[in-house]
Design a protein around this nucleic acid. Structure first.
Length: 427
RNA sequence: GGGGAGAUACCAGAGCGGUCAAAUGGGGCAGACUGUAAAUCUGUUGGCGCAGCCUUCGGAGGUUCGAAUCCUCCUCUCCCCA
């Protein structure tokens, strides 16, 4: 199966420039995707495009991961309704290093002849003078052309307008493609569908400036069946950085996807073959309560993004928290397991003397541990039966005492069905 | 430059002198049902010492026993004419 066919059945093609498939069939083709260092970690929204590079390499082509040290300094107007605040340079450089490290995990940099390469557009942009840029790059495209781009048009129509800086973004990105075409023989740029306009500016620039032919391929924006934004939870993005999103939370995110989404995500985010996925889907439909799709999906991604150990820990924690575990099994856990299992669970601390005489549950949940923002909220949820201590539902009259402690110093608080907190009691 | 409309809780959007902590819808959260799913139903959605009190309706003043509601000024947004 060739790359385009592969991506197509996975639902990962949104737009493809005519001739792209022929180019890929003709020879080993180098392609790139860019990542701007707008944050110190990639999030799962970036995962789809990373997978495109992975598929590319598996199909025998050569992937380039570009870190946007330069473009990140400008700000991409695509999909943004308002001008963005510029990040300062130390932050950008720091983010750039973090993102680079994360990208390295997914690609093979040693296989010949199509080893992956990492490039940074800052390298070929930093010494490019403004005047030179205007003469060498700006001259090839009309402002009319640039203004016709959706990303620009939208901002021109909105009240907020667009700065010259962000307006120029497509030129900088377009030039990247041009540079890579010229120096690295990169003939294809891929990315999310929101990047189509920028990518086409690149192919256009290559055509006019170098007389060359280059191609574009984008994948659709990942969506959820219920219309919600993919990859966001109440607490924010799901990050690839385990410091920002613990492997446990990461695993939980995938486990919680709906049936409909799981069938879609497993195609896009794992490397299972068509036959395997069809089998999983069949098994899932026969016994939906086993949630084979979610489990397979969560396992595969967690292992690939984090590690097998992280997966096992997340799985164990999940089984204790969501399985048939009772207060008794909790009490029987060794302190070591307890801590290991709850590593990814939010934790807070409380002084032992606060509970020695019995502490009102409302104060415990709000003032002392901040598990709830206010006492009113804590009371409300207690009334609704949404709070459990050590897996036992409790009422508003409950008193927190030494008898609640696991291993003499831990209390497991459950807010609603899925949110756990580990409270450490310090003497 | 002239004329008009508006700014209300997370969002949308009622309220137009007391009965307004503010209708309704969406979203969020929780409960039931389940499969840690979806759909559905129910409850809840400013704070607190919670049958009471405190702080909220763009900002600052004022009228009034009493204002989200009336007046003045300010800030911002939108629309129409030039």
């Amino acid at each position: 199966m060739n790359l385009v066919e592969e991506l197509r059945w996975r639902g990962m093609i949104h737009d493809i420039m005519p001739g792209t498939e022929e180019q890929l069939a003709k020879e080993m083709t180098a392609a790139y995707i860019g990542y701007d260092p707008t944050s110190d970690s990639l999030h799962i929204g970036n995962l789809a495009s990373i997978m495109m590079l992975v598929h590319l390499q598996r199909a025998g082509h050569k992937p380039f991961a570009l870190v946007g040290g330069a473009t990140g300094m400008i700000g991409d107007p695509s999909g943004k309704s308002e001008e963005r605040v510029l990040l300062d340079e130390p932050t950008l450089r720091f983010n750039q290093i973090c993102i680079q490290k994360q990208l390295e995990k997914f690609l093979n940099f040693n296989v010949q002849p199509n080893a992956a390469e990492m490039v940074n557009n800052y390298d070929w942009t930093k010494d490019f003078s403004f005047l030179q840029f205007l003469r060498d790059v700006g001259k090839h495209l009309t402002v009319n052309y640039m203004m016709a781009k959706d990303s620009v048009k939208k901002r021109m129509e909105s009240g907020t307008g667009i700065s010259f800086t962000e307006f120029s973004y497509q030129l900088v990105q377009g030039y990247d493609f041009c540079w890579l075409y010229e120096h690295k023989n990169v003939k294809l740029q891929m990315g999310g569908s929101d990047q189509w306009g920028n990518i086409v500016t690149g192919t256009e620039l290559i055509r006019r400036k170098l007389g060359g032919e280059a191609f574009a391929l984008t994948c659709p924006l990942i969506t959820k069946s219920d219309g919600g934004k993919f990859g966001k939870t109440e607490e924010g993005n799901i990050w690839l950085d385990p410091q920002k999103t613990s492997p446990y939370k990461f695993y939980q995110f995938w486990i919680n996807t709906s049936d409909e989404d799981a069938a879609d995500f497993i195609r896009k985010f794992t490397l299972f073959s068509k036959e395997e996925i069809e089998l999983f889907t069949k098994q899932h439909n026969e016994a939906p309560h086993l949630r084979i799709l979610q489990k397979t999906l969560a396992k595969d991604i967690t292992i690939r993004v984090h590690s097998a150990d992280d997966y096992n820990a997340a799985l164990e924690a999940s089984e204790i928290l969501f399985g048939k575990g009772t207060t008794q099994t909790l009490k029987n856990l060794s302190e070591e397991t307890l801590l290991a299992v709850f590593e990814g669970v939010p934790q807070c601390e409380i002084k032992e003397n606060a509970i020695s005489e019995g502490l009102n549950i409302v104060d415990f949940l709000s003032e002392k541990t901040q598990i709830f923002d206010s006492k009113g909220e804590a009371r409300r949820m207690l009334k609704e039966g949404g709070v459990a201590i050590n897996k036992e539902k409790i009422a508003e009259s409950f008193l927190v005492t030494g008898a609640c402690l696991l291993k003499g110093k831990y209390i497991l608080v459950q807010k609603g069905k899925k949110n756990y907190f580990l409270v450490k009691v310090e003497s």
